[in-house]
Design a binder for these strands. Structure first.
Lengths: 202, 202
DNA sequence: GCCCCCTTCTGACATTTGTCATGCGAGCCG
DNA sequence: CGGCTCGCATGACAAATGTCAGAAGGGGGC
């Protein structure tokens, strides 16, 4: 009985190529492919794969959201995330929703096949380098509100706009931003946004 | 005589998969693979491919820099760029240095093979959607200095630091930033940086 | 040669930020 | 229950930023 795999990645080139390579493995069969988050969900419902290999960046819904839905809808289906630019925060979020594998796209197809088997067996696999990053980045020192406000500041909006969107007073927004800037050790909130992004705190 | 291809992409998964798929085409042979910009150059010198397929995002040197060097060193070698997230500016820069193909990773391997042949024949191919984006983004309204200063402002540095790094007075920096903000129609310089990035003006 | 644009500067001003002190209510832990 | 932290707010002040006017020099184009 072979191991049924769902592949979700918006880059057709990669998805197709991956499907071809995984097909070379005797014990793996790609039963469905998807190019977006919602499509991945629909495919999973229809084909009930054993393992879902999800790209982190997809239109519609990202890999972690899809994994969350899958955990609830198809509990027997293991999920794993493949990504180009893995940030520590993504890894944490992924593990928190029950994702069992997290690997960068720099691995080889053989490695990926092995990891799919590992995950299917019920074990977890996290890329060592990404794990090290996540550990060295540490836990977020930001409170929930600080992170929220910082996120709203991400596109360079002025305080007035942030305050409105967060339904807070401007003074409060400035206080949160100030403490976020202090905690990150940044020069101002824009640099703070950058740092928090890099460390996966937002 | 078959068409000799160099593949450069830092994502092993994609590169390997791609090599496998292109190998299925009778007239194509992948003579070299590279995982970084410098490695791509070295491989090109050693193997003298007919077409170099370069990823835009690579460690060391990006696809466009590699293409520039290749144009000078191996004029007979055609270059093309493959990318996940193509911004209009990248496309312009690429065409300016003689790149003959520019495609997103959402195309299929068959399409890619066709495009490789097109490029080898001396024709150009640019993904229609990316081309449309580039046209609608228009030409940059920013002067050279404005763009330079805006770039230095990208990581959220305060004016004092930008002034120092650009060897300009703070007042001058503020003037340039002000005019850049006006021209982009942004609310402040941080949003201006974002807009300029999106449109490929930096 | 003249005009226009770019670069660079100065100075002045209004506005936006960052920072700090302080206050109050809610929830939690011992 | 008392103390603690957290969320949310004000108000005030200093610093950074955005905007404007003006001025001098250097091309480039016509």
């Amino acid at each position: 009985m072979s191991l049924r795999v769902l592949l979700a990645d918006d880059e057709h080139l990669i998805r197709g190529a991956l499907a071809a390579l995984l097909a070379l493995e005797d014990d793996l069969v790609v039963v469905a492919e998807a190019a977006s988050g919602p499509e991945a969900l629909a495919m999973a419902r229809a084909h009930r794969p054993d393992v879902a290999v999800l790209d982190l960046e997809m239109p519609g819904a990202d890999g972690v959201s899809v994994a969350t839905s899958l955990r609830d809808e198809l509990p027997h289906c293991r999920t794993m995330i493949v990504t180009s630019h893995g940030r520590p925060g993504h890894l944490k979020r992924a593990l928190a929703v029950g994702v069992r594998g997290f690997v960068p796209k720099t691995v080889s197809a053989q490695r990926l096949a092995e990891i799919i088997r590992t995950v299917h067996a019920g074990n977890r696999y996290v890329d060592p380098e990404l794990a090290a990053d996540a550990i060295s980045a540490g836990d977020s020192p930001l409170t929930a509100r600080e992170a929220e406000v910082l996120e709203l500041a991400a596109d360079g909006a002025p305080v007035a706009e942030i305050a409105e969107r967060a339904a807070l007073s401007q003074g409060t927004v400035r206080n949160y931003l100030s403490s976020a800037v202090t905690k990150t050790g940044a020069e101002n909130r824009h640099a703070a946004v950058r740092l928090a992004r890099e460390r996966g705190w937002v």
